[in-house]
Simulated assay, not measured.
Amino acid sequence: MSVEHRVAVAVLVDGHRVLMCHRRADRTWYPDVWDFPGGHLEDGETAVDAARRECREELGIEVAAAHEELGRWVEGDEDITFVRLLSWDGTPRNVAPEEHDDLRWVTLAEALELTLADPRYPDLLRRVLVGPGV
């Protein structure tokens, strides 16, 4: 089976908090859930380039060169790469209201109370916010 959906996900971390976006209830894919900013890779883009572009388009920020790839999930027709962004210019704001109706910086405990887009997110959030092996 070929991968049809190559996606880059931006994980912005500020201390012990991570930025989550609430996807609008009328979205076709993953409606009414909390997710990370991101989207499909364009032709010729790397996951890091796509994460930077998506942050510009969805959050109105410019990501600096610093980043760390957190991992990749390949399942069925989806190939999702998670990129932790270590620095950026500007304050994240919702510049894509057609996609998200809320943005929120959350701690691990707060994130675990949300309806998340993927059941694997709690493990990813623990690793990012607390550390490996937790």
Rank of each mutant, 00 (worst) to 15 (best):
V95R: 06
G131C: 03
H40W: 03
P122M: 02
L125Q: 01
H67S: 10
A109T: 14
E98L: 03
R127D: 14
E54P: 00
R52G: 06
F82C: 09
R93V: 15
E113K: 07
G131R: 00
E58F: 07
D49M: 15
D79Q: 11
G39A: 07
D14N: 14
W73L: 15
L125R: 01
D77V: 13
C55Q: 14
A111F: 00
W105I: 07
L114Q: 14
A117M: 08
G60E: 04
G60A: 01
T91N: 13
E113H: 05
L85H: 06
R23S: 15
E54I: 03
L108H: 04
D79W: 11
G15D: 13
G44S: 01
W88E: 11
G44C: 06
V128E: 01
R53P: 12
E58V: 10
D32E: 13
D123S: 12
G39L: 04
P132V: 08
L114F: 12
A64C: 08
V3R: 12
A51H: 00
D102H: 14
V106L: 12
L19V: 06
V106N: 01
R127P: 05
R53V: 01
V134W: 13
V83C: 08
A25V: 10
D89T: 15
W105G: 09
V33N: 09
H67F: 15
G90H: 10
L103V: 08
P31F: 11
R126A: 14
R24M: 11
R93H: 14
P132Y: 08
V83D: 03
S87P: 00
Y121M: 12
P92H: 05
M1Y: 05
H40A: 15
M20D: 12
A66L: 13
D14V: 04
E54C: 11
G71A: 08
Y30V: 09
G39I: 04
F82P: 05
E68Y: 06
L41V: 02
L59W: 12
R104V: 00
V74S: 14
T115N: 08
V134D: 11
G44P: 03
Y121V: 01
A50D: 09
G44Q: 00
M1H: 13
I80G: 01
V33T: 14
V13L: 10
N94P: 09
D123H: 12
R24L: 00
S87C: 09
I80P: 00
V63E: 03
L108F: 08
V3S: 12
E99F: 07
G38M: 14
L125V: 00
D102V: 02
G38C: 13
L70P: 07
R56C: 01
A51K: 09
G131N: 03
H100T: 02
R24Q: 02
P31L: 14
N94Y: 07
L108V: 00
E57G: 00
L116S: 04
A50M: 02
T107A: 07
L124T: 11
E62M: 08
V18R: 00
V130S: 04
L116R: 11
R52Y: 05
F36E: 02
E110L: 05
H5D: 12
L124H: 10
